[in-house]
Amino acid sequence: MLKDITLGQYYRAESVIHRLDPRLKLVGSLVFMVSLFLFNNPICYLTAAVFLVIVIALSKIPVKFMLRGMKGIVFLLLITVLYHVLFTTGTVIVEFWIIHITYEGILNALMMFARLFMLIVGSSILTLTTTPTKLTDGLESLFKPLKIFRVPVHEMAMMMSIALRFIPILMEETDRIMKAQIARGADLGSKNIFVRVKGLVPILVPLFVSAFRRAGDLALAMEARCYNGGEGRTKMKVMHLRLRDFISMYILALYLGAIIVLGIFFKGLPAIVCEDMQCGLEFLIAFFKGLKG
């Protein structure tokens, strides 16, 4: 029952994107996200979309699999679109009661939709193509400079990898406890919200107890093997940047440069698009009126 969550999951496949250095993928995702927020311009979104489609194609992740994870955010996207359609000021198309739909509003809504959608798809590519271990290794390596400011980078990375490692175990445990309590007649499917929340107690208490027990066991096991933090600790897999990483870096820089140039060069585009939309609509109305007459 808990198996349908694909956001943040790893998808096993053989592709260039999978093989890239995790540090590069982390930086790349960040660059992509930043690029989405630099300009609010249709041509920038178009460039980003082309870039994203190419990366998805290279990563060999089935589009279906990727979209399955998006179900949870459909609601968020809808609210954003509605908000922008209803509350943007500008040239009015339709007006009744307190609702004004404007050209600017429609354009804004479309752009916001594109931004959010690509933001989530872009970041999901990172987790889909990178195993949790590689991801934490990459994070640890990227944040190493912070050690100067006494930030416990290694410890945080270790905590993160342990947390990720325990997600499937705790899921399984939850499933087992749920089944045991259902077998004892617990009512988990009740429509009454209070009954439902109360029904969680017999599941959460044993779950927490077992999580603490496991944490204690793990701490003992780590100490028994002389774990004492990151000082002087070597890695089993040392990360090296390869040719493909340097090529990707170059492509990434090119992409960011293109976005900036296009954003500055076509600064007036949103206004033009609105005007075009207005012209187009007026033309259509006139055309249909002509047909009727």
């Binding site: 445990e173 087992r176 406890i177 089944k179 045991a180 309590q181 077998a183 004892r184 007649g185 107690v201 017999p202 599941i203 208490v205 044993p206 107890v209 077992s210």
Partner: peptide, 19 residues
């Protein structure tokens, strides 16, 4: 409900279901 009254089930390591 009738079925649960008929069949009782004790899972592996049932001591971890006490709350």
């Amino acid at each position: 409900k009738k079925m649960r009254a008929g069949i009782g089930i004790v899972f592996q390591y049932p001591e971890y279901q006490l709350f």
